[in-house]
Simulated assay, not measured.
Amino acid sequence: MKILVAATFAALISQPVFATEVIDNPLTDTGSWTELREDLIGDVTLADGATLFTVDAPYRAHDAATVPIVIRQTDLTAAPITSAMVVIDENPAPMAADMTFGPAMAPLNFELRVRVNQYSNVRVIATTTDGDFMNGRFVKASGGCSAPATKDPSLALNSMGQMRLKHFGDTPQMSTPRREAQIMIRHPNYSGLQRDQITQLFISAHFIDKLEVFQGDEMLFTLEGGISVSENPVFRFDYTDNGDPAFRVRAQDTEGNVFEQTLPKNAQS
């Protein structure tokens, strides 16, 4: 059983998750945003984010339960993005993730996987010292929040909290310290809308709601999440290596479980 878990874990983290192109699926004017806006951000003025950053997402999702969303700052002369909120307008809980980023994450190139429950705008509200900006994509997907978990519940709970770090490319020279990393955390991230496949009863919501990632004592990013972050969350990102040999990752879920792990940067994945 342990061999099966390890093999499955390795296969999941090795899957490429960065989107390879920007698809012409801009935000639409329809949907729930007008009602959501006041609850989520109040009367904050939002500038057009298209000149500051891109949001890559598939027009038609291959798997509604694991939709890749890539946020990439493209204007390198502008102030860096220090925080971002991912909103999926038509999801039962639209606020998918509220994130903050340390200086080492600039310029931002960050991916996470989310659930999309029905055709919806997926928007990113990014903040810099110059103000707040919005950009996003329209995604055709359905059933992501109620899609059955991919693993047996007992197996999912037994492996909950396991973490894996993967780097891409060679260890950088001191003159070029930018690196690309991926962190995966095993957790079923139950949405509360899924049914047990045997009893057909709803599984209670149980998901990671807080995440902190550091290199040494330097914060890379933090995240407050909801039910829309996918099962076994994966985060892929660029960062400036400060020379510390390891990441420190701390995750907390809605049942009060805390998972902490030190992940050596140059260990074999």
Rank of each mutant, 00 (worst) to 15 (best):
M134N: 06
G102H: 12
F247A: 08
A147G: 02
V114P: 02
F259L: 08
V249I: 15
F138M: 06
Q173I: 10
L36Y: 00
Q182M: 13
D89P: 02
Q194H: 04
T74W: 02
E35C: 03
V229H: 02
S228A: 14
M219D: 07
R236K: 14
P177H: 05
G144V: 03
R248I: 07
A149Y: 09
T129D: 13
L193M: 14
Q73N: 01
G136T: 09
Q197T: 14
N158V: 08
E255Q: 03
M99S: 11
T262I: 14
D63K: 12
Q261N: 12
F133L: 09
A251G: 07
D48N: 15
M95A: 11
T129N: 10
T171I: 07
D48E: 11
M1G: 11
A126G: 13
R137C: 09
V114I: 15
T8C: 07
S14R: 13
T254E: 00
S228W: 00
I227S: 01
M105V: 11
R186Q: 15
F101L: 08
S191H: 01
P177A: 04
P245N: 05
T150V: 10
D152N: 15
D48F: 08
D170W: 04
A93R: 05
R113V: 05
P245F: 04
D152Y: 05
I227Y: 00
A6R: 13
F207Y: 15
L36D: 00
P80T: 05
S230Q: 14
A64Q: 05
Q215G: 04
A11L: 13
L12K: 14
P245D: 11
N25D: 10
L12M: 12
P58L: 10
I88C: 03
V44L: 13
I13Q: 08
A246D: 11
T222P: 07
E260S: 13
E38R: 07
P94I: 00
T54F: 07
L52K: 08
G102P: 11
P103Q: 11
Q194I: 08
F138R: 06
R164V: 15
L223I: 11
H62T: 13
F237H: 05
V213L: 10
F110V: 07
N242E: 03
Q73R: 01
I88W: 02
M105L: 13
G243Y: 02
E111R: 13
N135K: 09
E111Q: 14
V258K: 07
E224W: 06
T77R: 12
G31K: 01
T176V: 08
L108C: 07
G102Q: 11
P188T: 00
G216N: 10
